[in-house]
Amino acid sequence: MNGDIRPGVIDVHAHWLPRVLLALPPGNPLGGMNDHDGELFLGNMPLSFPTAAMTDIDTIVAGTLKSGLGARVISAPPFAFPVHAPAEADDYVAAYNEQLADAVARTDGTLVGLGLVRLDDVAAARRELTRLAAAEGVAGIAVPPVVDGRSYDRGVLREVLGAAAELDLSVLVHPMQLPHPEWDHHYLVNLIGNPVETTTAVAAVLLGGVLEELPGLRICFVHGGGCAPSLLGRWGHGWRQRDDVRRGSTRAPAESFGLLYFDTITHDPEVLGLLRAHAAPDRIVCGSDYPFDMAQPDPVGYLLGHGIDAATLEANGRRFLGTKPADTSS
């Protein structure tokens, strides 16, 4: 990553979208995002936070410092992923990435950016990834776990990961709340859907042998990896017993699991403990999901209170972002 990051704990999972792009990419089925008297809505649904919390860089910087963080990594909200009419989304993607680079460059290392790419066309993705790799303060991309019923073990999606690894860019995998009729109430599309989407992508990467092909890939799964920590034993059993599970990888899932990054948004210390039992200690990074209603309100305090020290969190965040260690000479 080009550019410095402020010393301190790094929150790798927060969101920003400029006001001029609230309409969302072409083809989005949600009616766009819009401001109603200072509150942000998705279509007709209130998002329960001020518009400025998502759109105003000064507000995000102030919130970052108030939370006791050194820096915060901002990416587009999942509604802005260009997946519904990707061939028509080049202008939106380019506009977001240009404004992201400009915004983070003005924050003296308090904010780091993760850009957008198309996921249907490797050449288009590579063009945008190359521009992002040259942008100061931009560390990589944010992508959804599942696109058109597929994940990152095959096809274009796998090739996009390969291009990101080749360009030394980080990848944050963030769910989209894909609709299911059985999840149309109780906010289950988020409470169940988000973890399940993430779990699907973790399984695809592990069982698809992605890290065997791309050992330098820095890829992070949010919300504590979803259900993956609790299913790792089951996946390992299947890998040992079944040829069709083992066919895509030469390593047992638990071996590659230690190479993945995970954020810490678990909402439960016991679940955080399970994640820590399976993930590598140097692959656990602070996350908040700012400014959404499911965010961890005190990301630093939550982790310090449950046995993860600030120096480790900072080092892990910097490692995920591909940046140099903090300068402690002064």
Rank of each mutant, 00 (worst) to 15 (best):
191 L>C: 01
213 E>F: 05
102 D>V: 12
187 Y>T: 01
83 V>Y: 08
121 D>H: 08
60 I>K: 04
202 V>F: 06
205 V>D: 07
291 P>H: 09
20 V>M: 11
117 V>A: 00
256 S>N: 11
296 Q>M: 09
19 R>N: 00
4 D>E: 14
257 F>P: 00
178 L>S: 07
106 R>V: 00
173 V>T: 04
226 G>Q: 14
217 L>A: 02
177 Q>E: 07
227 C>Q: 14
124 A>H: 02
152 Y>Q: 03
51 T>C: 01
77 P>H: 05
214 L>D: 13
145 P>M: 10
119 L>Y: 01
291 P>W: 13
16 W>Y: 14
248 G>Y: 06
228 A>H: 01
231 L>R: 12
94 A>F: 10
184 D>V: 04
83 V>S: 07
34 N>G: 14
127 R>S: 01
166 E>M: 05
146 V>L: 04
284 I>H: 11
304 L>D: 00
60 I>L: 14
83 V>T: 14
38 G>E: 04
247 R>C: 07
132 L>I: 12
43 G>A: 13
183 W>G: 02
250 T>R: 09
195 P>D: 02
22 L>W: 04
37 D>K: 06
147 V>F: 12
245 V>P: 04
16 W>R: 07
314 E>R: 15
279 A>K: 14
122 V>Y: 02
10 I>P: 03
43 G>C: 13
203 A>P: 05
205 V>Q: 11
288 S>Y: 08
307 G>F: 12
4 D>P: 10
253 P>Y: 00
183 W>N: 08
94 A>T: 15
185 H>W: 14
312 T>N: 04
230 S>G: 09
21 L>G: 02
131 R>N: 00
194 N>W: 06
280 A>W: 13
112 V>N: 05
212 E>V: 04
69 L>A: 07
153 D>N: 09
219 I>K: 11
265 I>H: 07
238 G>Q: 05
175 P>E: 12
102 D>N: 13
151 S>R: 12
256 S>E: 07
315 A>P: 08
80 A>I: 13
147 V>T: 09
307 G>K: 13
200 T>C: 13
97 N>S: 09
161 L>V: 00
50 P>F: 04
233 G>N: 07
109 G>Q: 10
169 L>H: 10
244 D>L: 09
84 H>W: 12
45 M>L: 09
45 M>E: 07
43 G>H: 08
169 L>T: 09
274 L>T: 15
103 A>L: 11
137 G>C: 07
283 R>C: 11
117 V>C: 00
195 P>V: 02
303 L>H: 02
246 R>Y: 03
88 E>C: 12
116 L>M: 14
308 I>N: 06
76 A>E: 10
11 D>L: 04
317 G>V: 06
